[in-house]
Design a protein around this nucleic acid. Structure first.
Lengths: 109, 109
DNA sequence: CTGATCCATCGCAATTTAACGATAATAACA
DNA sequence: TGTTATTATCGTTAAATTGCGATGGATCAG
């Protein structure tokens, strides 16, 4: 198993949507992305298996592949996770900075 | 200004919806309630003015009264805030336990 | 090159959310 | 009592979300 270059390449790359948000909107975006059980399950999974995964997520969750892909997209656009292409598959991993940011935003409440 | 008995009466009273949620669903509910800029603004306002408010929120936010009331309902059902009737008005205040809970849930991620 | 695999995206249906005005309910006040 | 003020709720509309199957584009194995 030759995966993966994810550890090397995972670097913050905020999506265009994310870039233009002011503080509270950014906070809301992060919270909303967290606001679905499936997406929380995905984050937990990525936390457990420290390295990146993808198709495995589909196997674990009771959801169709397209649905999981959609949730991954939401998480990625919000900045919770990052995806890196690794041959035919895509390898996801958490963005620890986002956790820090979210926690500090929570403290400003 | 004789308000208010809010400090006396503010005690946790989870709504029926909240009671039957497992861990991740509860987490998701809390996050989702946070997932709107107007609701974050409401929480900030309630944090600033330590005591409860209500109609003032309507004055501050650029939203109709019914819309604000709806957001307050979401926050209340999720457990972020509590409302107490004070004469003809309703006085809202934060639930600090929910903040603690949310933070610890965030740490389980 | 061909076929298989992996994944994102499209299109669709059903549900939920957000916002508003209008209405009702309740409590204070004249 | 009747009036005013405050807030929740109803009904509606528009938009976003959720979920799925189907399609299509890459990439790798043979």
């Amino acid at each position: 198993m030759k995966n993966s270059n994810c550890d090397d390449v995972c670097c913050p790359a905020p999506s265009p949507k994310t870039r233009s948000l002011n503080g509270d909107e950014r906070f809301a975006q992060l919270a909303q992305a967290l606001g679905h059980p499936a997406r929380i399950a995905i984050i937990r999974l990525l936390k457990e298996r420290k390295t990146c995964i993808c198709g495995e997520i589909v196997e674990v969750l009771p959801l169709a592949q397209s649905t999981v892909s959609q949730h991954l997209k939401v998480l990625k656009e919000a900045g919770w996770i990052q995806g890196e292409v690794d041959g035919p598959r895509v390898c996801y991993c958490l963005d620890p900075d986002t956790f820090k940011r979210f926690r500090s935003l929570l403290d400003t409440l």
